[in-house]
Design a protein around this nucleic acid. Structure first.
Length: 877
RNA sequence: GGGCGCUUAGCUCAGCGGGAGAGCACCUGCCUUACAAGCAGGGGGUCAGUGGUUCAAAUCCACUAGCGCCCACCA
């Protein structure tokens, strides 16, 4: 028997492993190019190969999977393309750390061996996150899995570089970049994280040559004095006008440098005199260019002082700062120290303080690429959801600066540029050249640097589909339909995909961009390992099951606010899964003798028409909610329908029929309805809770012998049957629910056990309502444990009765022998006070002539009906 | 210095122009033959503050306060 095989509590673990394997074996996730059919495509935001599933991934991929599964069920040719990102710095760091445990550095083993080792690492551990995504239930087409450094992708990246170079959109030059002294590479402007920090403003004397006068210069970074090649003042600054053109002595370095005038200087800041260090400040660099100043680098790549620093050579930059302050004090060149807050840049990867550093790098010209990317959003051809993120996108695009794309790393796409050692020619081609195109020399060397990881991920929506080859996939699935990501990578990734998509494909990469929230802990703090407040999705899956986690995340995916995740919330949805389990258990326990039957309209009771109406309403609203990516709303609708309508009321109302208190025929109708409603609801819920819905769906169809397809994954998305939406049935059922709840409430408040049978009298002059109550009186008997129900139009309140009024129906419950009447009097007084307050509010509203004149008539009618009901209730209580 | 978001029950959050909601927590009573991860019932909120628009404001507008995020070269 089924009852024996189904445990009372849903156990997600075996279910989840079983079904994922089944789905993969059946290739349900494999997308086919089917001309004539509508494609629906999402490319996954590729997680780093070093990654381990965190809540952000869990949210991101749950939402994608919901949309994907729905489209698959709708019959679209649905592709969710997965893959991973080689994640230059992150991966290199991991392997370097591994080496460090063996007492080695990457330099010790050399570039080739290091890259080899990193590939080995990738083969071993790179699939971890993929397996975690599978545990999450992600229905990706794994046959199309890509990696940003696989062979085809490498070809795409080379094409990107070479083409942009020949179009003049990529150039190489010696500029100030953000240098990370720990990662030993340049990073892009947006990879620098600024933080307000306590610092000092040091006022330093710069002696004027052959004079005892001096200019006071204020700086936050005295160690850079050693690289100064000028002092700049504003041309209109009266205080310094006469000093322009003179020579001053740079302290400690004792270098003679000019006083120059430049508009950049702000006379109101500091002392109005600026020390110029072209090699270590981007603005100073520009001033240096304008005035043809020398650039003197004083740091090594590691952030130590170099030989230009003289006796400070070899000292760490921050130790040197202290030492130099001391020396300035000793030489009486330091006037004062003022504390000040200033913004300090940190490496986004390792948090090391960034050093502006002069070096030769490759850059991409962004303005020409940004223009079409701005236009496509302005024209509404790419939609951001929520819309407000458009502004963020525009702000960045309008103020875009050139992008430093070269990185001094070993792990990544090595730049396909070769330098002729004989004639200095630069050769940029996709395939390695054999000889110099200018002097024919074979003495060539490839650029040592690799590309910024985002330079390759910018191609993700089309390189993964085969570009630069014109594959069938590319033609069919591009542009993709939707991108799901969080707002922290709008600049890094979204913006650049738009630019490169438009540039290389001539077409936008996606239609919609859905931006979801960041996941924080229950107190709103960022989850971080150091804080110890990380809720690991894999732990949650262990404890509550994947479906509970997914449903939690989906329920909280409302636009506009970050998600503060708490375990309690997850537990609540675990309980929902259990509710589903037990409701289906109930259905299956009562399917004996089930036969599929066509249900005629005349077979339907009020409760049936009501639940079918509610079901279709729910489905309609779920469709609408998903369409606008309101996952929280969709989840709530299904939750409420299933628990509050189906389980709490409908299931109870089918019991008399199932328990054969009536005929076998009505039992069969009830069985069919239950199976149909479960089937429909499970399909509606499947994208959100794929595992439990499959498990139950399979079981129900096994018992009912009723399946037309072999898995819910490919079952059709539930259709709305508008003819089943039945306002009358909903109103009738509402009446029954009101009366039932009232009786239950009276019993509960007066301490009468629900299961204690009572006598109830219902009085109303409304003939229609009496008919409904008569017709469906069995519901009241069943739900409120009434054993004697009298319905009439002229019933007077029996002595010692509890009384209530619901929807104009007087409800009397004789209490004789049941309970002390005083408690009922107190209850009634509370009820009366509340109703009188409500009535008063209504009355005031209706007494206002403005309200009557200006409000919509439906609103006025409603208010009048409300007041009438309140008054009626007051009169009767 | 700009920009954005948030502030609703003890907690986590919906609602975003016409009767203040859910889950958890709390209180009362129930092992009612699907479910105690449950059932029935109940208490609890000047919807951050001030002002405005409107017949009507949690909802729209302005300002204020607090929290959070993003951008910005002021050394």
């Amino acid at each position: 028997m089924i009852q024996e095989t189904l445990p009372k509590v849903y156990n997600p673990h075996e279910v989840e492993a079983k079904w994922y394997k089944y789905w993969e074996e059946k290739c349900y996730f494999h997308a086919k190019v089917e001309p004539g059919k509508k494609p629906f495509t999402i490319v996954i935001p590729p997680p780093n190969v070093t990654g381990s599933l965190h809540m952000g991934h869990a949210l991101n991929n749950t939402l994608q999977d919901i949309v994907i599964r729905k489209h698959r069920m709708q019959g679209d040719s649905t592709l969710w393309l997965p893959g991973t990102d080689h994640a230059g710095i992150a991966t290199q760091n991991v392997v370097e750390r591994q080496l460090a445990q063996e007492g080695l550095t990457r330099q010790d083993i050399g570039r080739e061996a290091f890259i080899q080792r990193t590939w080995e690492w990738k083969e071993l551990y790179g699939s971890r996150i993929i397996n975690q995504l599978k545990r999450l239930g992600a229905s990706c087409d794994w046959s199309r899995e890509r990696f940003t450094m696989d062979e085809g992708y490498t070809k795409a990246v080379r094409r990107e570089f070479v083409q942009l170079y020949h179009e003049g959109l990529i150039y190489r030059g010696n500029y100030i970049v953000n240098w990370c002294p720990r990662c030993l590479t340049a990073i892009a402007d947006i990879e620098v994280e600024h933080a307000e920090e306590e610092g000092n403003f040091y006022y330093v004397k710069y002696m004027i040559k052959d004079s005892s006068d001096y200019i006071t210069v204020a700086t936050t970074r005295p160690e850079t004095i050693l690289g100064d090649t000028a002092v700049a003042v504003h041309p209109e600054d009266g205080r310094y006008k006469e000093l322009v053109g003179l020579t001053v002595i740079v302290p400690i370095a004792n270098r003679e440098v000019p006083v120059i005038a430049d508009d950049y200087v702000n006379p109101d800041f500091g002392t109005g005199a600026l020390k110029v260090t072209p090699a270590h400040d981007p603005h100073d660099f520009e001033i240096g260019e304008r005035h043809h100043l020398k650039s003197i680098s004083i740091f090594t790549p590691e952030g130590k002082m170099n030989k230009e620093a003289g006796k400070y050579e070899g000292m760490d930059r921050f130790d040197a700062r202290e030492a130099i302050i001391k020396e300035l004090q000793d030489k009486d060149l330091l006037i004062k120290i003022e504390p000040m807050k200033h913004s300090v840049g940190h490496c986004y990867r390792c948090d090391t303080i960034i050093e502006p550093y002069l070096s030769t790098q490759w850059f991409m010209r962004m303005k020409p690429l940004a223009e079409p990317a701005i236009r496509i959003v302005e024209e509404g051809k790419i939609a951001f959801v929520p819309e407000q993120w458009k502004k963020t996108y525009y702000d960045w695009m309008y103020n875009i600066r050139d992008w430093c794309i070269s990185r001094q790393l070993w792990w990544g796409h090595q730049i396909p540029a070769w330098y002729c050692k004989d004639c200095d020619e630069i050769i940029v081609t996709e395939e390695a050249p054999t000889h110099c195109t200018k002097c024919n020399s074979t003495n060539l060397e490839q650029d040592h640097d690799v590309f910024d990881t985002w330079f390759s991920s910018a191609l993700w929506p089309f390189a993964t589909l085969g570009w630069p080859e014109e594959t069938d996939d590319l033609k069919y699935f591009y542009p993709t339909s939707l991108l799901v990501t969080s707002h922290d990578i709008i600049f890094f990734w979204v913006a650049r995909m738009v630019m490169q998509g438009l540039h290389f494909m001539g077409e936008k990469p996606f239609d919609d961009v859905y931006i979801h929230a960041l996941v924080r802990d229950e107190f709103g703090r960022k989850m971080s390992k150091s804080r110890g407040n990380v809720i690991d999705p894999l732990d949650v899956i262990e404890e509550f099951g994947t479906d509970a986690l997914r449903f939690t995340l989906s329920s909280m995916a409302t636009p506009g606010r970050d998600i503060f995740l708490s375990r309690e919330r997850i537990e609540g949805y675990r309980n929902f899964a259990n509710k589903l389990w037990n409701a289906s258990r109930f259905v299956m326990m009562n399917l004996e003798g089930y036969e599929k039957a066509e249900i005629a309209d005349s077979d339907l009771e009020t409760a049936d028409r009501w639940i079918l109406s509610r079901m279709n309403h729910t489905t309609m609203h779920v469709d609408e909610a998903i369409k606008v990516y309101n996952f929280a709303e969709a989840s709530r609708l299904i939750y409420d329908f299933f628990w509050s309508d189906f389980a709490d009321w409908y299931v109870e109302l089918t019991k008399p029929r199932l328990y054969q208190k009536e005929s076998l025929y009505t039992r069969q109708i009830a069985q069919n309805l239950l199976v149909n409603i479960m089937d429909h609801t499970l399909r509606l819920l499947h994208p959100f809770m794929p595992f439990i819905t499959e498990e139950i769906w399979q079981k129900i169809h096994q018992v009912s012998g009723n399946s037309s397809v072999e898995s819910i994954v490919i079952a059709p998305w539930p259709k709305v049957d508008a003819s089943m939406i039945d306002a009358a049935a909903e109103a009738d059922m509402g009446l029954i629910q009101s009366v039932t709840s009232s009786i239950r409430s009276i019993k509960a408040v007066l301490g009468i056990a629900l299961t204690k049978p009572v006598k109830v009298l219902l009085n109303t002059p409304d003939e229609n309502k009496r008919d409904i109550l008569e017709r469906d009186s069995s519901y009241i008997y069943e739900l409120a444990w009434v054993d004697n129900l009298i319905i009439g139009s002229n019933i007077l309140k029996p002595e010692h009765s509890a009384v209530d009024v619901e929807q104009g129906i007087e409800i009397f419950m004789p209490l004789k022998g049941l309970v002390d009447i005083d408690e009922e009097i107190r209850r009634l007084e509370r009820e009366l006070a509340k109703t009188e307050a409500d009535a008063e509010k209504s009355r005031r509203k209706l007494a206002n002539p403005q309200f009557l004149a200006k409000a919509a008539s439906a609103v006025v009618d409603m208010e009048q009906a409300k007041l009438a009901e309140f008054d009626d209730k007051i009169a009767k209580l």
